[in-house]
């Protein structure tokens, strides 16, 4: 299972990397530091095999283009024919308004608060298998 992670927090990325390494059948294929980087990645190069990731793990609070900005841009991309990759929001927010707003996006399949547990990683895996 190929994961793209969009987050600007290097410490989080370090921990997440470790967690993925310890989970069978998962690998990180791209790390983007903000929404804009991620959009550019999805638009252009993607990875060496030219394949799309199976799951996007998205943070909300980021510089340049935050998680919401990314979701809006990504919706436009999908409208233009790109098939949607399921998205899992992984944020430190506990604000109900954020949860409510996230549920309005079709491609957002689930919403977790940091820190990530191994249970949540299993859920992510299931999601990518369903969609």
């Amino acid at each position: 299972m190929r994961i793209m992670v969009i987050d600007d927090d290097s410490t989080f990325l370090f921990i997440f990397q470790k967690q993925i390494e310890n989970t069978e059948g998962m690998e990180i294929v791209n790390e983007s530091r903000n929404g804009l980087e991620a959009i550019n990645y999805l638009k252009n190069g993607q990875d060496a095999l030219g394949e799309k990731p199976d799951l996007i793990v998205l943070d909300l609070n980021m510089p340049v283009m935050d998680g919401w900005g990314f979701l809006n841009e990504y919706c436009k991309l999908c409208d233009n024919g790109a098939s949607a990759v399921p998205i899992c929001i992984l944020s430190s927010t506990i604000n109900q308004a954020d949860f409510d707003h996230a549920s309005t996006y079709d491609s957002v399949k689930t919403f977790f608060s940091k820190p990530v547990t191994s249970e949540q990683l299993k859920t992510m895996k299931k999601i990518s298998e369903i969609y």
């Binding site: 410490t11 430190s92 506990i94 604000n95």
Partner: peptide, 16 residues
């Protein structure tokens, strides 16, 4: 939610 929880979440993750 962001500026306190995020580092705390990281501390927990690092300890793990």
């Amino acid at each position: 939610s962001h500026n306190l929880r995020a580092p705390v979440a990281n501390l927990i993750g690092l300890l793990d």
